[in-house]
Simulated scan of single mutants.
Amino acid sequence: MAKRSRTKARDQQQTPGEVGPRQPCPCGSGRRYKACHGSPDGPPPVFVKRPFEGLAAEGDLIALRELVPAATAPLTLKEGDREVVLATLLPGAAPAYVDADGRVVLALQVLHSFGDPARDLGAVLVQALAYAEQGETGTVGLTSDPGEGPRLQDLIVDEPLDVTVHESFGYWSDLIGDETGAVASAAEQADAQMTPSRKLAAVPAAYWADVHTKEHLRWVMPEPEDELLDALARLHAAGEDQVAEGSKLVGMFRAHGLLTPVWDLPAGTGAEVLEEGAAAFRQRLDAALATTEPLTTEQRSVRSALAGRQVTIR
């Protein structure tokens, strides 16, 4: 009874039209007002579930950001002819680097925690381009939430990425120079923990990886999660989900709004043999995606098991 009275007294003290601290925030975030726009620190960053949506290179961007250790790809700007290179990682996890020739190197594997990776990358790229125009060289990055501004897709031409996967972080020296040898030393340290990878040519956003004890195929797929899980369940139940002899679909990552199915491969499989198998699997997957019949009991069981073997990265 006392608790009800205290609640009633609080409600009576609240100004009409005012939002209570424990009420949902009017912004629609789903958080309580005191943890959102009513917080002394202001609202937390808006989380963008699928930051690279709409880009032809969405799958490769996710793979290079989350799964592939060392890779580069040229970017074409919508305005200007400045040379811009996308890299998975730079020494010291630098967000970007401008070299003496005015070339901009933009790194993907940087966690700013401002809610929208595409916005963060856009802000870094804008700063790096301004740096280059001023004739400055060196590292560029964000020190605070960039706020409103262009996202990556606002700044670059929407086209597939021409990805080069490197066997070593030695590409750092080629991109940013190395007068003191410090970059080469950092590359050697990074190489010691590197997982060799290869990009498949037959299908988009699919990468073979050698994790020493076994091999994997990691394939970022653009389909909506529910539809993809249904299709994968149909293929698995029919024994048609292999991409090579002895391969096994073991689970999937979830990153930036897309699923990345993962296959275990027997040691010694290699990337080359996957080209034909992955292309054939893509055809079977497309057919399964086009199927509208309800899942069978067995397929629903498989789907549930696949959904339980998901690991969310971002």
Rank of each mutant, 00 (worst) to 15 (best):
A2D: 14
R4Y: 09
K8L: 14
R10C: 06
Q12T: 07
T15E: 13
P16Y: 10
G17K: 12
G20N: 09
R22N: 15
Q23C: 05
P24N: 07
C25A: 08
C25Q: 06
P26G: 07
K34C: 10
S39E: 13
P40N: 13
P40V: 05
D41I: 02
V46N: 07
F47A: 13
K49R: 15
E53L: 13
A57L: 12
A57T: 08
D60V: 02
V68E: 09
P69Q: 06
P69I: 01
T72Q: 06
T76A: 14
T88Q: 13
L89S: 09
A93L: 13
A93N: 15
A96D: 05
A96T: 10
D101S: 10
D101C: 07
G102N: 09
V105E: 08
L106A: 06
H112C: 10
S113C: 11
G122P: 03
G122M: 04
V124E: 05
V124Q: 03
A128S: 09
Q134M: 06
G141F: 14
P146R: 07
E148A: 15
V163W: 05
V165W: 12
S168W: 11
S168I: 12
Y171E: 01
W172I: 04
L175D: 05
I176N: 03
E179Q: 13
G181H: 11
A182D: 12
V183G: 00
A187L: 09
A187V: 01
E188N: 03
Q189Y: 04
D191V: 08
Q193M: 07
T195Q: 03
K199G: 08
A202F: 03
P204N: 04
D210E: 07
T213V: 12
K214V: 03
L217M: 00
L217Q: 00
L217E: 00
P224S: 06
E225P: 02
E225G: 02
D226T: 11
A231F: 02
A231M: 01
L232I: 00
L232D: 00
A238R: 09
D241P: 01
F253P: 01
F253N: 01
P261N: 02
W263F: 04
D264V: 01
P266G: 04
A267H: 09
G270R: 00
G270W: 01
G270T: 02
V273A: 15
G277H: 05
A280T: 06
R282K: 11
Q283T: 10
D286H: 13
T296G: 14
T297V: 15
T297Q: 15
S304N: 06
T312D: 12
T312P: 12
I313F: 14
